[in-house]
């Protein structure tokens, strides 16, 4: 019996994932209502449950894909993978008020630029203070502080070792998770209320995953504005990391 059930779930992985995430959403909506009186957004709780399950999956399998590495939950990997994620993000653009987005275009671009340079400097400086004194190590860790994709792309381009790349990816993943978890709590401090403020947030907070989950847990209406800017983050980072930022670091530390 159990074996048949397991087979059914594995051969219908994506369908099972839809049902499973539906249950998580139902659970988190009830938790939000009953435990927090609606103060904490249901999506925030759902994302935390997701991260918790990812931790559990990681300890079970020793893999890198959280829950998706558990055979039974392979469908989660497809449902939350880059293809569906990007498809759903693009779909949210349908709700964008073109005029609002255009008005905040410039400040969004400025935020994007600051959001690439500042994390790099902070990341590289902390790497330096921990004894990573050569330009390649500092650049790779600094790039990881931009996003967890910029890190390895930059590292590969400038010839960093694999343990440096791993450290840089980890920095980016931790950043994304902190943004996901802390955004709803910091929403007031960040003044996340308007489309413009969401675009500034998207540019500065970086990482599509962090921004999209953080905004989803704060105010679903703001998601497309933040995502619109954040999706340029990785591209700009991969552009500047192995070039301008690497050369600047090299000029500074030799």
């Amino acid at each position: 019996m159990m074996e048949m059930l397991e087979k059914l779930m594995i051969s219908n992985a994506l369908v099972f994932a839809f049902a499973f995430v539906g249950i998580i959403m139902l659970l988190s909506t009830q938790l939000a209502k009953r435990l927090t009186n609606g103060r904490v957004h249901a999506s925030a709780i759902a994302i935390l449950i997701g991260l918790g399950l990812a931790y559990w999956g990681g300890t079970q399998t020793g893999g890198k894909m959280g829950l998706a590495d558990v055979k039974l939950f392979g469908g989660i990997g497809l449902m939350g993978g880059a293809m569906f994620r990007d498809f759903a993000i693009v779909a949210t653009a349908f709700e964008v008020h073109a005029e609002e987005a255009r008005k905040a275009g410039l400040i969004g671009a400025i935020a994007l630029f600051i959001g690439t340079v500042v994390p790099f400097i902070v990341g590289a400086s902390i790497a330096w203070s921990f004894g990573y004194r050569d330009a390649i190590a500092m650049t790779t860790i600094g790039a990881g502080a931009v996003t967890y994709i910029v890190g390895p792309v930059t590292g590969a381009a400038i010839g960093a070792s694999s343990d440096l790349m791993a450290l840089s990816i980890t920095t980016g993943v931790i950043k994304a998770i902190i943004v996901m978890v802390s955004t709803p709590a910091l929403a007031k401090f960040l003044r996340l209320k308007t489309p413009r403020s969401a675009m500034v947030f998207g540019g500065l907070a970086g990482t599509v995953s962090g921004v999209s989950a953080g905004l989803a847990a704060t105010d679903r209406k703001l998601v497309p504005y933040g995502a619109l800017v954040a999706t340029f983050h990785t591209g700009l980072g991969c552009l500047m990391g192995p070039s301008v930022l690497f050369f600047a670091t090299k000029a500074l530390v030799g």
Partner: peptide, 15 residues
Amino acid sequence: YIPVVVAMAAQQNVV
């Protein structure tokens, strides 16, 4: 979108 993001959270390398 939000359910997809939850699935995305579930496959982060949290460990």
